[in-house]
Simulated scan of single mutants.
Amino acid sequence: MFGVHPGLINANLHRHLTKEILAKLSAAAATGGAQVAPQMRKTIPQGAATSVWAATAPELDGKGGLYLQDCGIAPPATPEVTGVKLYALDPAAAAQLWEISERMVGEKFALS
C-alpha cells in the first residue's frame, strides 16, 4: 500500500465543496498559507500517472508504506522541495499509530 500525491489537478472537484470551505481555501491562498509548487500543478492525465505507476512499476514489488509523487518515491520534504514530511518517517510515531488503530478496531494485526 502506498500514499500517492497526484498533484493539484483542475478536475472541477471543487464544485463539491461548501462555500465555507471555498472561502477558507481562498483566504489561505491569499495569505500565503496554501502555496503550491509549480510542479504540483497538473493536468488530469499527469495527475493519474503516479497512481498508474504505483500499480504497475516492477521496482515497487514487495514494497509498501511509501509516499509517492511525480512517478517516484518522494524525497523527504524541505522548504525547497515537496515530499514526504519528516514526521511521517518517524518509526516511533508509526508504532503508536499502529497501536491506536488496533485498539480502535478491536483487533491485532500481524506486521509483515
Results as ranks from 00 to 15, higher is better:
Gln46Ser: 02
Ala74Gln: 00
Gln96Met: 11
Thr18Trp: 03
Ala37Gln: 09
Leu25Gly: 13
Thr56Trp: 10
Val36His: 04
Cys71Gln: 09
Gly83Asn: 02
Met40Gln: 14
Thr31Gln: 08
Leu17Gln: 12
Pro91Cys: 05
Asn12Lys: 06
Gln69Met: 10
Val52Ile: 12
Glu59Val: 12
Ala57Gln: 03
Ala28Met: 10
Gly83Met: 04
Gly32Pro: 00
Gly47Ala: 05
Lys19Pro: 14
Trp53Cys: 00
Ala88His: 08
Gln35Cys: 12
Leu22Gln: 05
Thr82Ala: 13
Leu25Met: 11
Gln96His: 12
Leu25Pro: 02
Val52His: 12
Thr78Arg: 01
Thr18Met: 04
Ala92Asn: 10
Ala48Phe: 02
Ile100Ala: 12
Ala93Tyr: 10
Met40Phe: 10
Leu86Asn: 11
Ala94Trp: 07
His14Ile: 14
Ile100Tyr: 06
Ala88Asp: 13
Gly47Asp: 04
Thr78Ala: 05
Gln96Asp: 15
Thr82His: 10
Asp90Ser: 10
Asp70Phe: 01
Thr31His: 03
Ala54Ile: 03
Ala57Leu: 05
Thr82Val: 10
Ala93Gly: 13
Asp61Cys: 13
Val52Phe: 13
Gly33Phe: 01
Ala88Met: 14
Ile44Pro: 13
Ala27Val: 07
Thr43His: 05
Glu99Pro: 03
Leu22Gly: 04
Pro38Leu: 06
Lys19His: 11
Gln96Arg: 10
Thr78Lys: 01
Leu86Ser: 11
Ser51Asn: 08
Tyr67Leu: 09
Ala11Ser: 14
Gly83Asp: 03
Asp61Trp: 06
Ala94Thr: 07
Lys24Arg: 09
Ala95Pro: 05
Ala94Arg: 06
Tyr87Val: 09
Lys19Ile: 15
Arg15Thr: 13
Thr82Leu: 08
Met40Ala: 12
Trp98Val: 15
Gln96Leu: 14
Lys85Cys: 11
Ala94Lys: 08
Lys24Phe: 11
Leu89Gln: 08
Asn12Tyr: 07
Lys85Glu: 14
